[in-house]
Design a protein around this nucleic acid. Sequence first.
DNA 1: CCTTTGTTTGACAAATTTGTCAAACTTTAT
DNA 2: ATAAAGTTTGACAAATTTGTCAAACAAAGG
Lengths: 199, 199
Amino acid sequence: MAVKDSHTEQQIKDAARKLFFTEGRFKATTQEIADAAGVNRTLVNYYFRSRDLLFDQILQEARTTMDLRLEMAMSAETDFKKKIEHFIDIFMEQSFTYPYLDIYMVTRINEDVERQNQIITDLKKTERLKNFLRDIDTEIKKGTIEKIDPVQFLMNLMSLLSHPVVIQPLFKKLFNYSDKQYRQMMIARKEIILKMLFK
Amino acid sequence: MAVKDSHTEQQIKDAARKLFFTEGRFKATTQEIADAAGVNRTLVNYYFRSRDLLFDQILQEARTTMDLRLEMAMSAETDFKKKIEHFIDIFMEQSFTYPYLDIYMVTRINEDVERQNQIITDLKKTERLKNFLRDIDTEIKKGTIEKIDPVQFLMNLMSLLSHPVVIQPLFKKLFNYSDKQYRQMMIARKEIILKMLFK
DNA sequence: CCTTTGTTTGACAAATTTGTCAAACTTTAT
DNA sequence: ATAAAGTTTGACAAATTTGTCAAACAAAGG
């Protein structure tokens, strides 16, 4: 028992991440998380003190991980279009595993307008983001992409990538798409998005 | 008293709509709704029997209204690009008043995978939607827009419109945008979206 | 073997939220 | 004016959920 149970903490976090960010079950209770992790409910309190602290922790970690991955992907390339391609790959992969990360954050922001939690208040324009905007500006001056507010360019990129994943359950119902069909459509999007941004 | 209170039911629905679809407070309790409506909490049960029935009702109504508005806007025009322009106008207007309508539906779908509620199960490809897809196809054949899967075209349109509104709270924190700045950016998007779709 | 430390459990208390009910109150129609 | 129907209220019960605690248990070191 002891050997396996030594990573109880990790099991709980994994279960919570899956419920929240992957399945979008924002109302999941500590009991549901514990069940999904296959552990006793009070262990959530033992390891994380409270439900909200657990949420904050996995949110924090997810953000840090994502930031690092994008940082790596972007800095590896010198060509702007290649950078964007890399960005799309990483972001899309992330979106498949954690489709609800962003809107979870949004609902948390809205949840409680006054008593804002630390992690969300800490959201700041990162160095990476600033660099990215600067890159876009450079490309416009070079003429690689058409004249556009860099913020709008970024907004377009994120929208085209993120929204289809968020809206997936609705869309599947509307169009009677299977999981497989949906995934294929998403994969086909990469080329489409590139065309829209650069053509 | 009596005259004013005769539309208690309406007041409750208005308050719920605002909390859910406008402010994205998905966890709002009956007490909060009642407070926002300025009425006694038990009146929610009196008029709607249960919390969930109230939610279902306003969701149903919102969908019907939106459908009708789009129907009108789209059928009024013969020119495809004009149709899209109209669509953008209506959809954007809707998004300003009910930015969280879509993701509320998504979270409701995810909430409870087995016991699916009626309204959400009822989601079907509407006549309007089918016509729209057919229109897109026609335009491709005419050469007005580049060759693309009509579903992908629709997905692009919806993404470019919807996502910025959904992500608004996150975005405002990241870029330190005021409400006014954000709105201006959104308004500027109309032209940008048209360019991306048709150029 | 025994102690110390860390982990797990069930029982319990507290807080939150929902829904019901009878009584009070209003309005409308007779 | 009175009855009937509809509306509003506070009190109550039930359900759900969270967090605490002491006791049980397991592992590791002396």
